[in-house]
Write a protein that binds this DNA or RNA. Structure first.
Length: 770
DNA sequence: CAGTGAGCGAGCTTCCGCTTGACTT
């Protein structure tokens, strides 16, 4: 009965702290929350003042049992979960579940994992803040009520297994509305005038540079008139002004900004960033990766200063404290930074090295001095016109943090890097090389990437660092949105050129709307969003979360009873659900395309139980309607009658191979080629209507080759038993049941008996579990 | 795994936030 038990949320943290505390302290992890609402009847007794019913999920039973055993043996229990709403609730659930005695239970918090911080925390314990716990319960109950009432409504009205929630539904709304903005965008064109000049300095050296007309010209006639009027003109410098400017580094990484920069600079998906960061955290290379704080510990600040002064000199060092501007930030952790700042790079997988270096650079740069620039502006007069052209140059006087790191941007920039202007002064004359007026277009709104959607959600205060990546997965998995590349289409534009005293005109073309890994709404995403916005505009409101957060704060401050808050929301919301269930029509997005020339029956498209489909004929007619699903890249919004009708041509025989028919069809898993009763998926770029027999045979042969490599070993004793190569490495397959191979064994050396042993063991382990 | 859908209809799906393995073929 002498040990102290410290409970934290993460095992990696437990390990680190354990080293600081030494003997007499046992440190264990709760692995996050240990209890959640039951799934029966919402897990909330609505009749009984919204009393929550908590259960311990199966995968937490062992954790709880271990903690219970340790708690029994401990003289004092220290609850050291994070100092935020969720962390406080975890501490409270631990008290409840482990039946901890308040006399020997202490609540402690620390913001950085150093020996001093932890000792200080232990010297200043406090009680559990029940108000903060209640704010968490209100948050949890509200999310459950919203999610579990809206989702079943969608099952009834749209399609089974859909979902809606306070966070995911707003994420979908952002994507759908952005797409609408793009659809409705009217691109306007204008002309931009850029001139190339040559200047000869007093040593006779020639310098080339460019200058631009500040005003844009409204159409081709204006551009032509402008260039014509410049024919034979002289150009001289009206004045030159110099202005100093400064650039400051960005704050160190939070989860959201790390996801954005890893996406822009390394091309990582949000989930990929988190999984690589998790490995870095677990191996002790970086601090915790789920954080909304830009704060660095004192020791990190000192460490950064040492590194910068040693590596670049004292002039490059500037200690900065950043403050969070994010809505609803809870700041239970530090910013994401290297654990040891003197370590510029690490050993490990390529991805880990790249992400680590990004984190190192960002952290170090945040503690460096400003970059100092000098911007030069020269105004250039045109002898035949009152207008003037402007040339700008930028010189870096002092690199500062730019020596290490520069943040990227989501916007496509057409600004060219500006260099130094030649040493011109007032009244100098310039030689015009050529002047170009080129047609430009107003910029379409930009589609979201995973990371820029996270940025937007964070700005709105919706979601938390631990949920950004899972939220993206959810809206992709539900089929509300797809992440895609688009090749774009050609657009023509006009360029007028004044050179050698002649104005010429030329038509050029460029690619418009090329997209890489952008989020597009699907038909179902659009349909569900319109339905929810129409009937539940209050919950789908971009400010809904921000407003209820204010109420959670009141609860946390003890100024409001948490059940009061739910009482104010739920009855009205529930009534909305009941009303909508009874009174709303099924939203189908139906569009009538025309008549089927063969039968004369109506052809329409809509979203059905299995997704978007075409229908020939109507229900209730003598002959039943015929149905066909849309292809993945087709939409009920844009599909034509002709495209819709051709879907009924499938499955389509395209020829013979090895004396059997080859037919192209579309199934549950997309387009396929069928041959001798076997299915072969078509590639992403294969069009089911125009695919050739040659290509189909190629696919068949590829698949056969793959299957050949799939088999590592076969056994004569039992043809149902094989060692196969799968997506996640080698595995044992017995009559369609699969088993993992222990890491200690080499799959190609396993014999028949070995396999049976592994299977036996796996089956026993499974039995124990249940 | 590979067309399903028009309504007699079983029973299933679902939320957000904390956290990692276990697990997928």
């Amino acid at each position: 009965m002498e040990e102290n038990l410290v409970i934290v949320e993460s095992p990696a943290k437990a390990k680190t702290i354990s080293n600081f505390l030494g003997k007499g302290f046992k440190v264990q992890s709760s692995f996050g929350h240990i209890r959640d609402l039951s799934k029966d009847n919402f897990g909330i007794d609505i009749e009984n003042n919204y009393s929550p019913e908590y259960i311990i999920p199966d995968d937490k039973k062992k954790v709880v049992a271990d903690l219970r055993a340790s708690a029994k043996k401990a003289s004092t229990i220290w609850l050291a979960s994070d100092e935020d709403r969720e962390g406080e609730a975890i501490a409270w659930h631990l008290c409840e579940v482990l039946k901890l005695n308040p006399d020997n239970t202490r609540r402690i918090v620390f913001h950085e994992i150093t020996k001093n911080a932890i000792q200080e925390a232990i010297e200043n314990p406090r009680d559990i803040n029940q108000n903060l716990v209640n704010a968490q319960q209100a948050r949890r109950v509200l999310d459950r009520l919203v999610g579990f009432e809206l989702s079943p409504l969608l099952w009834k009205k749209v399609k089974p297994a859909l979902s809606a929630g306070r966070v995911q539904s707003v994420a979908v709304r952002l994507i759908v509305e952005r797409e609408n903005e793009i659809d409705n965008f009217q691109s306007t064109s204008f002309f931009r005038v850029v001139a190339q000049f040559e200047f000869q300095d007093k040593n006779g050296k020639n310098h080339k540079f460019q200058a631009e007309l500040p005003a844009k010209l409204k159409d081709q006639a204006a551009a032509e008139e402008f260039l014509e009027s410049c024919r034979g003109a002289g150009y001289n410098v009206l004045d030159v002004t110099r202005k100093p400017a400064k650039k400051s580094p960005s704050p160190p990484f939070t989860t959201s900004t790390l996801q954005q920069e890893a996406s822009r600079k390394l091309g990582f998906s949000v989930a990929q960033t988190m999984s690589v960061a998790q490995r870095l955290y677990e191996s002790g290379k970086i601090t915790y990766m789920r954080t909304d704080s830009v704060n660095l510990s004192k020791s990190a600040l000192a460490g950064a200063r040492d590194v910068i002064e040693g590596e670049y000199g004292a002039a490059y060092s500037k200690t900065r404290n950043f403050s969070t501007k994010t809505k609803g930030a809870q700041e239970a952790h530090e910013a994401i930074r290297p654990s040891y700042l003197q370590q510029k790079s690490i050993e490990g997988k390529r991805q880990e090295q790249r992400l680590y270096e990004l984190i190192w650079k960002r952290t170090i740069a945040s503690q460096m001095s400003e970059a100092e620039l000098e911007r030069t502006t020269a105004r250039i007069g045109i002898s035949t016109r009152p207008d003037h052209l402007v040339a700008t140059g930028e010189v870096l006087r002092f690199e500062g943090f730019l020596k290490v790191y520069m943040e990227s941007s989501d916007e496509e920039s057409n600004e060219q890097p500006r260099g130094l202007l030649p040493p011109m002064k007032e009244k100098d004359t310039l030689q015009l090389l050529q002047m170009e007026a080129s047609e430009r277009f107003s910029q379409f709104p930009i589609r979201y990437t995973e990371a820029s959607l996270v940025k937007k959600l964070e700005e709105l205060g919706i979601g938390r660092p631990s949920t950004y990546a899972p939220t993206i997965s959810t809206i992709l998995n539900r089929g509300y949105t797809v992440k895609e590349d688009r090749s774009g289409s050609e657009r023509n534009y006009q360029v007028l050129t004044l050179a050698g005293d002649q104005v010429t005109s030329e038509r050029k073309s460029e690619i418009l709307g090329k997209e890489k890994a952008k989020l597009f709404p699907t038909d179902i995403g659009g349909l569900v969003n319109d339905f929810l916005v129409n009937y539940f505009g209050n919950v789908l409101d971009y400010n809904f979360t921000a407003n209820i957060e204010k109420e959670f704060d009141k609860i946390a401050d003890g100024k409001m009873e948490w059940t009061q808050m739910i009482k104010r929301f739920y009855p009205g919301f529930h009534d909305q659900v009941v009303q909508t269930t009874q009174n709303s029509k099924k939203p189908t997005g139906e569009r009538i395309l025309g008549k089927d020339p063969e039968s004369g029956r109506q052809v329409s498209v809509k979203v059905g139980k299995f997704g978007p489909m075409v229908q020939i004929g109507e229900a209730g007619e003598e002959e039943k309607p015929r149905f066909a699903g849309l292809l993945k890249n087709q939409s009920i919004k844009t599909i034509t009658l002709e495209e819709a009708l051709s879907l009924f041509k499938l499955p389509l025989k395209i020829g013979q191979f090895e004396n059997s028919d080859v037919a192209i069809g579309v199934g549950k898993f997309g387009p396929y080629a069928r041959h001798a009763n076997k299915f072969y998926s078509l590639g992403k770029t294969d069009d089911p209507f125009s695919i050739t027999l040659e290509r189909a045979i190629e696919l068949i042969n590829n698949k056969r080759e793959q299957d050949k490599n799939k088999i590592i070993r076969k056994f004569d004793e039992n043809p149902g038993l094989q060692i196969l190569n799968g997506r996640w490495g080698p595995y044992i397959s017995l009559d369609k049941e699969n088993f993992r191979i222990p890491k200690s064994k080499k799959p190609e050396e396993l014999g028949y008996e070995d396999c049976l042993q592994i299977i036996e063991k796996a089956r026993e382990a499974k039995k124990k579990k249940t």
